[in-house]
């Protein structure tokens, strides 16, 4: 009847989950907006079928999905006390994240300079740059957090006993990857 309820839950984990729920609501709104404006685009305007460079996007998507696996490995290694494996997988995750951001940068520069698609060109531009831009911003924040954890780990502050910070960062990272799967499906598949 009076079992202690508090021990099972860590407030920091609950807090991170709650934050991710609010992030999901945020991206849900942007995605819903994207879908709301899916409609034929006047000929001559940049449209989803011609504008997007699918091979490049597939490559960066692959990197981001792979990074979810590597951060999972990193966390497992951390819990087992394999310091170097942890550092290695963690750094790999970071590099993959940076490659993804590079891919986005390439994509944007080609869109803006070659296809003349900007945020103010038409509704596709408004929706696309807002949605993908906010996702990229979240990846960037994730990369910074990865870097902070890496720095702290090299100073032995992140240890198997103090692994919660690393775990929460990995949750955030998985979430950002999951959002990308939806964004990819909506922007590059459904919109075509």
């Amino acid at each position: 009847m009076s079992e202690p309820p508090s021990e099972a839950l860590d407030p920091r984990k609950v807090g991170m989950l709650a934050f991710l729920v609010s992030e999901a609501a945020f991206f849900g709104t942007l995605i819903a907006t994207f879908l709301f404006f899916l409609r034929p685009i006047r000929s001559g305007e940049p449209n989803p079928r011609d504008a997007f460079d699918i091979p490049l996007v597939l490559l960066s998507t692959f990197c981001l999905l792979l990074s979810s696996a590597t951060i999972h490995q990193a966390h497992k290694s951390l819990l087992r006390g394999w310091r170097w494996a942890f550092l290695g997988w963690w750094a790999t995750t970071m590099v993959l994240g940076i490659i993804f951001l590079g891919g986005t940068a390439l994509e944007w520069s080609s869109l803006i300079q070659e296809k003349q698609l900007t945020i103010s060109r038409n509704l596709l531009g408004s929706c696309y740059f807002t949605l993908v831009g906010f996702h990229a911003a979240h990846v960037s924040v994730g990369v910074v957090m990865l870097a902070v954890v890496l720095l702290l780990a090299m100073r032995d502050v992140v240890t198997p006993q103090q692994s919660l910070g690393a775990e929460l960062v990995s949750w955030y990272w998985h979430f950002v990857d999951g959002v990308w799967v939806v964004v990819f499906a909506v922007v590059y598949v459904v919109a075509r």
């Binding site: 709650a18 609010s22 609501a25 945020f26 945020i119 038409n122 408004s126 740059f129 807002t130």
Partner: peptide, 30 residues
């Protein structure tokens, strides 16, 4: 957690419309 983020997103769209010329709420441009 479920209601404020949509407002945040919508306000960002207002700011993008006003500052960067996006067209979310601009009926003249779709």
């Amino acid at each position: 957690l479920l209601a404020i983020p949509p407002l945040t997103a919508a306000l960002i769209m207002v700011v993008l419309d006003r500052q960067l010329g996006a067209h979310f709420f601009d009926a003249a441009n779709g």
